[in-house]
């Protein structure tokens, strides 16, 4: 039961965050890259205000695998690093928290570039 409920919550919260972004795309002149930046910065702000952790506890992967979660993780990482290393942590915490995703994207991106070539888009 707990499992089903957890999956449902991830689906609903994740879906809702996507709908919000879709509304921003269709109803405002914000372009997708700007929306990505907005979500990340919003995630950092949520983390800074201490709201990200309860949100993640509620929504699970519905928020943690989104760009909002990316920002939230950065904020969490920075907080831990500042507590451990002082001011230096302000610089080391963010990238450390984002290291897994960033390195994965870079490495897989490079491999993809090596192994494939651009195809023409279909109409």
């Amino acid at each position: 039961m707990d499992l089903l409920f957890g999956l449902l919550k991830a689906f609903l919260f994740g879906g809702a965050l996507c709908v919000l972004a879709q509304l921003l795309i269709d109803l405002t002149r914000l372009t997708p890259p700007r929306i990505l930046v907005l979500y990340v910065v919003l995630g950092v702000a949520l983390g800074a205000l201490g709201l990200y952790r309860p949100f993640r506890a509620l929504a699970g992967c519905g928020v943690s695998v989104t760009l909002l979660g990316f920002g939230g993780n950065v904020a969490e990482g920075v907080r831990e690093a500042v507590e451990a290393q002082g001011l230096l942590g302000a610089l080391t915490g963010g990238l450390t928290a984002a290291a897994g995703s960033s390195a994965a994207a870079l490495c897989f991106g490079y491999l993809a570039a090596l192994l494939s070539r651009g195809k023409p888009k279909r109409l």
């Binding site: 795309i25 997708p32 651009g118 195809k119 023409p120 888009k121």
Partner: peptide, 18 residues
């Protein structure tokens, strides 16, 4: 050429957007 123009003026060809 569609592909050359996308590369020069817009986004990468494999970028998934609407």
């Amino acid at each position: 050429h569609f592909c050359a123009a996308e590369r020069q003026f817009r986004l990468p060809l494999e970028y998934g957007g609407q």
